[in-house]
Amino acid sequence: MNQPPHSTRPIHVGSKVSRQPHRVWLKKLLLVTLGSILASIGLELFLHPNQLIVGGVTGISAMFAYQMEMRLGLFLFLFNLPFILFSYGRVHKQFAIVTVLGLTVFSLSALMLHPLPAVLTHPLAAAILGGLFLGLGIGLVLSNGGTLDTLAVNHISSNLSGGKRSKIKLERIIMVMNLLVLTGAGIKFGAQQAMYSILAYLIAVEAVHFAMRGFTFNRRVYIISTQPYELQKSIRARLLREPELSPLERTNEKDWSQLPALYYTIHVFETRQLKAIVRSVDPHATVVFDMDEPNS
């Protein structure tokens, strides 16, 4: 829940992309397949056998699978299918193709792994490792242009909505649906299982971000400000960072490279501090982390 993991320029899902060499496409499809298998391992060998529910369509599918005593893989594809059909004409075909491949492998892998026993039976360990496998798998698919959980990807939904107000509305709907899924898990399996489910969900979210950053703890950030020299001086003094040559400038791309911007690579734990520095110098500056939406 696309752009590549280190893109600094927001690229909408519906934007046109250039034709890619066959080798790049093959690598992309192999990584999507690997990510889908990793996600199914986390789901079927760790989370599902221990009655741990995560958010999104994956969590809804798991709840239906428990309630109807059917295999999870069937619901994973069926509940994501309406989004694919709805968005096919509104997004680039590459996104639709990669997503269908990912969901197909995800569902088939879950079906094949279902008869196997759980790797771990302790809910805490299962929540940690299951959330990790699931998040890394989803993140790997996302970073290669697809998705495995259509409710978990806020920026895909917001791109389809086409407006900031619609984006906020969609994010609230997604948050409420995730809350309902986790609440339903608590009602069905008890408060203790619900706490483990929340832990698995949070770990999965962080693992998604980690995978989409290219499996690194570094983040790339673009700062567009009318006070670049003051910002550069403050960041140098408090974070000991110097601005770098941005990918847009390296490739001679126009657009944001023509704006008064600063480009940095920082550690993920420095994110909050960097935002505080930017706000203190220029409250109206625009900050873009990796492929996040611009924020002031």
Rank of each mutant, 00 (worst) to 15 (best):
T216F: 09
H114R: 02
R90N: 08
R71L: 11
H92M: 03
S246D: 06
K93M: 01
L29V: 11
M63R: 04
R241C: 06
F83T: 07
A110W: 06
N80C: 07
I37N: 02
I41R: 04
H114Q: 12
M63Y: 10
R238M: 02
M175G: 06
T251C: 12
S257R: 08
A285W: 02
A65K: 05
P247L: 03
K16R: 15
L179T: 14
S158M: 14
I60A: 11
S197Q: 09
M70F: 04
Q258V: 14
P294R: 01
V278R: 06
H284S: 14
T33V: 11
H114V: 01
F133T: 13
G135N: 10
N178H: 10
S166T: 12
Q232Y: 01
L47Y: 01
E69D: 13
F46Y: 06
A185E: 01
G130R: 02
L120N: 02
L103S: 00
L151M: 15
Q258C: 00
N2F: 14
S143W: 10
G137D: 08
Q227S: 05
T121E: 10
A285C: 07
Q258F: 12
R220L: 14
V98G: 02
A185V: 11
A285L: 04
L240T: 01
G214P: 04
R279Y: 09
L239N: 02
S225A: 09
E69C: 06
I173H: 07
A237W: 02
A185R: 05
I187G: 00
Q258W: 01
A110E: 11
E244Q: 11
A276E: 15
N144L: 11
S280T: 05
P283S: 06
G14Q: 09
S234R: 15
T226R: 12
R219H: 11
G130E: 05
V119H: 04
T216G: 03
V105H: 02
L274E: 03
I198C: 13
E244T: 08
A65Y: 00
L31R: 01
A185M: 02
L43N: 03
G89W: 07
D255S: 15
F269T: 08
L111F: 05
T251V: 15
V100A: 04
T183G: 12
S161N: 09
M212W: 03
A207Q: 07
Q193C: 04
L274T: 05
G55T: 00
S157Q: 15
P10K: 01
F269G: 00
V100L: 15
A126T: 09
I277E: 10
M68Q: 11
Y196G: 00
T251D: 11
Q67S: 11
A118D: 06
H122C: 08
K254Q: 09
L231Q: 13
A96E: 10
